[in-house]
């Protein structure tokens, strides 16, 4: 797992070291992973959800613009990449991925326009329009799914030049590479003037305006970057993880899942996006194992799903009240308790 610091108080050398260790471990997992199950059902969805969470975190955590339309941009990315592959023969895969992200970004910018006038709850409701509109359009117009009656698309085999990524391990490596590159680029963006503008707009919009931060451009940039990242995550979701997707898979539940990842993991933290994604992926697996061990037969899939909803709902409430900065804040606190001298104290 790539560990990425979100705050500038970390010393760059230590941070670079941790990122390096994270990347080496992430690539080193492949030969060690005993089963395709681990790669296919745990690690790949973890990476894809983490990238989507990074995308939403740029918009909601850093720039302070609440969005409930993440799944729509996943869907746009997936269907755009599918159609580009289908209709533009010979288009290289990476170009396809980037263009699909670009299309998601363009649609994200359109749906970001109301953000100049609406904030908070009202903006969140207006992003729901994206959620419903995209799902409706993909179901309504057969063109998007090449006239499949239920809107299902099948992913092509991933191929860059003569290298194909067909097995679980190869698709994991493909996803990992894209997620690592995009996360590092996002980190650079957040540390630039544009990234500071995001936080300024979030923390005090009027002061930002008076200083000369271009509000509309900053907000639309946040929407664009966020939708791009989520769109690329959508391509990975469809091409590298599930390989067969339908519009119904990108419903409001998926949007909420990504929102919960960043709330539980930590708003305005890239590391938090990864920790939150890991939690959301691993937690149901743990719960089913534990439930089965403790309750035996009674703990069937229905009970599992219900208890999952209950526990995650409760956790959201607990985090919002007790630790709005999420798991990553707990992690940082535990870490500084272990090594008090190494970190500059930030009193809370």
């Amino acid at each position: 797992m790539a560990l990425l610091a979100s705050t500038k108080t970390n010393r760059p050398t230590a941070e670079t070291l941790w990122i390096g260790i994270g990347i080496v471990v992430a690539y080193g997992v492949v030969p060690l992973a005993g089963s395709d199950y681990l790669l296919d059902a745990v690690l790949t969805p973890f990476l894809v959800l983490a990238l989507a969470a990074v995308g939403l975190n740029v918009l909601t955590g850093y720039a302070g613009q609440v969005s409930l339309g993440s799944a729509a941009f996943l869907a746009v990315g997936a269907y755009a990449a599918y159609n580009l592959h289908l209709r533009v023969p010979g288009l290289p895969l990476l170009v396809d991925v980037v263009l699909a992200g670009g299309i998601a970004a363009a649609i994200g910018i359109v749906f970001g326009l109301p953000s100049l006038r609406l904030r908070g709850f009202y903006l969140a409701v207006s992003t729901l329009a994206a959620q419903f509109f995209v799902q409706w359009a993909l179901t309504k117009f057969g063109w998007f799914s090449n006239d499949n009656p239920s809107g299902v698309i099948d992913a092509p085999v991933l191929r860059i030049g003569s290298v194909s990524f067909a097995t679980a391990a190869e698709r994991y490596v493909f996803s990992l590479t894209i997620v690592v590159v995009l996360t590092l680029l996002t980190l650079r963006l957040l540390r630039s003037q544009s990234g500071r503008n995001f936080i300024a707009v979030r923390d005090h919009e009027i002061a930002a305006k008076v200083i000369g931060v271009p509000l509309l451009r900053t907000k639309l940039l946040a929407f664009g970057i966020s939708s791009f990242l989520i769109g690329v995550a959508g391509v990975l979701w469809a091409f590298a993880y599930l390989r067969t997707v339908e519009p119904a898979g990108f419903n409001l539940d998926r949007s909420f899942q990504i929102l919960f990842i960043i709330i539980i993991g930590g708003l305005a933290s890239l590391r938090g996006s990864f920790i939150g994604a890991a939690f959301i992926v691993v937690f149901p697996l743990l719960l089913s194992r534990i439930g089965a061990a403790v309750l035996g037969r009674v703990f069937d899939s229905g009970v599992l799903e219900m208890s999952q909803h209950i526990v995650i709902g409760a956790l959201i409430i607990v985090f919002l009240i007790a630790e709005p900065r999420g798991l990553i804040a707990l992690w940082d606190r535990a870490w500084s308790a272990l090594r008090p001298a190494r970190r500059p104290a930030i009193p809370t």
Binding site: K8, T9, R196, I199, A200, R202, D203, H204, I206, A207, A208, A268
Partner: peptide
């Protein structure tokens, strides 16, 4: 005050 709390 109108500082940006999340920035150094």
């Amino acid at each position: 005050l109108a500082l940006f709390k999340g920035l150094s």
